[in-house]
């Protein structure tokens, strides 16, 4: 029973992150596109990210909402957060001459260092959700459908 409550809390926390993030990208796609084009990334990779990132974020939300796919939602959330965390980590380590532009972020009040720790926190939350969900499956396979 405790695991179920914990999973619900984790799911809601992740929804509170991903829904605003995905919504902002979709509603103000032009700004998101320009922001990404200013990042110090190869052009091809940037254009791939422009179109896949919003789609993946929406997919995370859909998966988290569905009891059947929630585990995959935790996994995808962890993967995306890991990618973002690594990117910010590289920026903070001085990989590029100047810190990439942070304008356009929904969490725009944060410094790069704060954003790094914020991402790390949500990476941890995603991983915990994944582990708890997997453990729940192992102990009660029926729960896989109920969620």
């Amino acid at each position: 029973m405790k695991a179920k409550y914990l999973l619900n809390i984790i799911t809601i926390a992740l929804l509170l992150l991903w829904i605003p993030v995905a919504t902002e990208k979709l509603i103000d796609f032009t700004t998101f596109k320009h922001t990404l084009l200013r990042q110090p990334l190869p052009h091809g990779l940037t254009y791939m990210a422009i179109y896949t990132l919003p789609a993946l974020e929406v997919l995370v939300v859909v998966m988290l909402v569905s009891p059947r796919w929630r585990q995959w939602g935790f996994l995808l959330s962890a993967i995306l957060m890991a990618l973002f965390t690594v990117y910010i980590g590289l920026a903070l380590l001085g990989t590029w001459d100047r810190l990439p532009c942070a304008c356009g972020s929904v969490i725009s009040g944060m410094s790069w260092t704060q954003h790094f720790w914020f991402n790390l926190l949500f990476l941890g939350i995603s991983v915990v959700g994944l582990l708890v969900k997997k453990r729940q499956h192992t102990s009660d396979p029926v729960d896989q459908v109920v969620g």
Binding site: I12, L15, V61, L64, V65
Partner: peptide, 10 residues
């Protein structure tokens, strides 16, 4: 699915 309701509210 109560979580869907939560998502809609968010």
């Amino acid at each position: 699915n109560a979580m869907a309701l939560v998502a809609l509210a968010i």
